[in-house]
């Protein structure tokens, strides 16, 4: 019985040590927040698919903050990574929409030069 207690307490201490040893992911959180801001500035909230990713990123930043507050730094760290990658995707989706718009405009312009409306 003592062995069990010993094993369990050792596992518990290990778990506690593990959590306590993970430093607060302040850098990763800052990166995630910056990425979210970048996506917002690129107009991601105006593009439906990008807006969805942006919303996820924003929620995950909030979650990461709450986890850090609760001392769960390791989970918070991964949550910031999720937020960062969602924000990056949101930014790319917004840029994709802009690139498509530019391509369409250029095509239209070229067509109008090739066959001007009389």
């Amino acid at each position: 019985m003592r062995t069990i207690t010993c094993v369990l307490s050792a596992m518990g201490s290990a778990a506690l040590l593990c959590c306590a040893s993970h430093p607060p992911p302040t850098d990763n959180l800052a990166s995630a927040i910056a990425a979210v801001r970048g996506a917002q500035e690129a107009g991601a909230d105006q593009v439906p698919q990008a807006a969805l990713q942006l919303k996820l990123a924003e929620e995950q930043v909030t979650q990461a903050r709450a986890m850090m507050k609760d001392g769960d730094n390791e989970r918070a760290d991964y949550m910031t990574l999720r937020a960062f990658n969602d924000a990056e995707l949101a930014l790319a989706l917004a840029r994709e929409q802009q690139a498509n718009a530019r391509a369409q405009k250029a095509d239209k312009a070229a067509t109008s030069i090739e066959a001007p409306q009389q």
């Binding site: 840029r95 994709e96 690139a99 530019r102 391509a103 405009k105 250029a106 312009a109 070229a110 090739e114």
Partner: peptide, 17 residues
């Protein structure tokens, strides 16, 4: 990749114009 494709389309169209 899709952004790259759109950029190429825009460049091609500009050259065409």
């Amino acid at each position: 990749a899709r952004i790259s494709q759109a950029t190429t389309r825009a460049t091609d169209s500009a050259q065409r114009g």
